[in-house]
Amino acid sequence: MMKQLVFILFILFVTLTPKAIAQEKINTNLKQEIINLSKDKWDWMAEKNADTLDKLFHEKSVFVHMGGSWGKDQELNIIKSGGIWYKKADIHEVSIEIIRDTAILLNRINLLAEVGGNEVTNPFMVTEVYIKENGSWKLGSLSFTKLLGEH
C-alpha cells in the first residue's frame, strides 16, 4: 500500500512539475515583454513619437496627471504640441502582475519633463494598465502619483 502511494505521488510529481516550470517561464517571458513595452513607451514619449503611441494607446485609454485626467486624443495632442515633454524617465523599480489578458505595471521613476516651457523633475509612482486585444498589448491607463520625500 505504501509503495503504491509513493509511486502515485512520484508520477504526479513527474507529470505536474514540467507544466509548472513551463507556465512560470511563460509568465516570466510575458512580464519581460510588458516591461520592455513600457520602456519603449517612455522612449516614444521622450521622442514625441505620437504616431507610434497612437497605435499603443487603446481607443478608450485614460491618463491621470497632477493637473487632471483625460483621454487618448488629448494625451496625444499634449505630446505632439510639447505641452508636456516627457524628456527622460529614470526608472528605479518595476513590478508587474498579470491577470488573464490584463497587465498592471508599477514604475517608481524620476521624471524629467518640460511643462509649459519649464523644466521640472518629479518622483512618481506610475501605474500602467495594459490589455491584450487581438494578440497585441494596448495601454489602457497611465496614472502618475507624485511621491513625497526622498526616493
Rank of each mutant, 00 (worst) to 15 (best):
K25S: 13
I109D: 11
W44N: 05
G71D: 12
T52Q: 12
G82S: 03
R100F: 02
E150H: 01
W44M: 13
F144C: 01
L147G: 02
G135P: 02
W85H: 15
Q4C: 00
E24Q: 15
N110T: 14
E128H: 12
E150K: 06
M45H: 09
P123D: 00
K31T: 07
V6W: 03
L147S: 01
R108V: 13
L142P: 00
E150V: 08
N36C: 03
A103S: 10
D101N: 15
S141R: 11
F63M: 08
N122G: 04
E114C: 04
E133F: 04
A50C: 07
M1G: 05
M66G: 11
S81K: 09
W137Y: 10
I96S: 12
V14I: 13
E33Y: 11
T145L: 14
K31I: 06
E33L: 06
T28Q: 11
G68P: 09
F63D: 04
I131H: 15
I131F: 15
D73N: 14
D40K: 15
G140P: 00
H92E: 11
H65M: 05
I21N: 09
A103W: 13
T15D: 03
K132G: 03
A22T: 05
L105T: 05
V62S: 11
P18A: 10
H65V: 00
N118T: 11
N29K: 09
M1S: 08
M45Y: 14
V126E: 13
L30F: 03
I98Y: 09
I26W: 15
W44P: 04
K146N: 02
D54S: 14
V115H: 04
L30K: 13
V62K: 04
F10T: 09
L147H: 02
G82M: 08
E114V: 12
E114T: 14
L53F: 04
Q23G: 06
E119A: 13
G149I: 01
G82D: 07
L53D: 12
